[in-house]
């Protein structure tokens, strides 16, 4: 059976001061069905670009991106991205935001209202289903984004530094929730983060990207039991290993500020 996602020799470049600048170079990756893969790497190393390409929002590249053996085409709800800035629709209520993709699928209104309700319940926002987005806290917005994506039953969920802007407590509780949802739904998740502890806590595998051009520098299997919590001592061994690789990359490009600590 073909891998859930296979990235073969993908190179991506942008025009930069009249020259072509490689942002990603010779990326080779295989991700299995149901795997939770975390990506860490210096900012500007092309992590967002890679997710965009998998989502089909950015298609100008060489090499192949295969989803279950088929080249990925136009964007579609089988590969859903949760953007760093979320992109929830302020003109719609929570309920209508979650229904949005179902409406595009032409699901009858009663049915989609019911299904959206189930996912809103799942992320504990039942009381806020009729609120508008600006009325929600940062963590609640994350939950809406999660529900809006999951309700469409994607095969691959792409998450781009989703919890960066949250306070530590909210982030911890979203870690718990995300792990629960993942173990229940068995989605394939690619999760980009700045935070090494977070990556080790969530991922089956942690990939370290090098910068300019971005490439997979190292890969770590994290075979710790789940559910994991960010403060677990067991994580530390892996965190240190990942940090060592990452630090090497960052020292190479020391201009980037990096967040590797416990987080405040």
């Amino acid at each position: 059976m073909p891998a859930m996602l296979k990235i073969e020799n993908v190179t991506k470049s942008y025009a930069h001061n009249g020259k072509r600048l490689d942002v990603l170079k010779d990326i080779n990756l295989e991700i299995n069905d149901g795997e939770f893969v975390c990506i860490v790497g210096p900012s500007g190393c092309g992590k967002t670009t890679l997710l965009n390409m998998v989502a089909g929002l950015d298609f100008d590249h060489t090499g192949k991106i295969l989803h279950r053996g088929e080249p990925v085409g136009i964007p579609g709800p089988d590969r859903l991205m949760i953007f760093q800035e979320l992109g929830l629709f302020p003109w719609l209520t929570v309920q209508k935001n979650v229904e949005f993709g179902l409406k595009l699928k032409k699901m009858p209104s009663k049915e989609r209202a019911k299904l959206a309700r189930e996912y809103i319940d799942m992320v504990h926002l039942t009381k806020f289903k009729d609120s508008y987005i600006h009325q929600l806290s940062g963590g609640m917005k994350q939950r809406v984004a999660l529900a809006r994506a999951l309700v469409l039953d994607p095969e691959i969920l792409l998450m781009d530094e989703p919890f960066t802007a949250l306070d530590a407590q909210t982030r911890d509780s979203l870690h718990d929730e995300l792990q629960k949802i993942w173990s229940r739904t068995k989605k394939t998740i690619i999760f980009v983060t700045h935070n090494v502890r977070e990556a080790v806590c969530l991922g089956d595998r942690v990939l370290v990207f090098s910068s300019l051009p971005g490439a997979v520098k190292a890969s770590f299997l994290i075979d710790l039991p789940r559910p994991r919590r960010i403060e677990d001592e067991g994580l530390m061994k892996h965190v240190r290993q990942v940090l060592k690789e990452l630090k090497f990359e960052i020292d190479k490009h020391f201009h980037e500020e990096y967040d590797t600590k416990e987080d405040s």
């Binding site: 989502a55 929002l57 136009i74 964007p75 579609g76 709800p77 859903l80 991205m81 953007f83 800035e85 979320l86 992109g87 929830l88 629709f89 949005f100 993709g101 595009l104 699928k105 809006r148 469409l152």
Partner: peptide, 12 residues
């Protein structure tokens, strides 16, 4: 961002 989010969910 809104356009991207819409396209991502299948709007064309």
């Amino acid at each position: 961002l809104y356009v991207k989010a819409g396209r991502n969910m299948g709007a064309r």
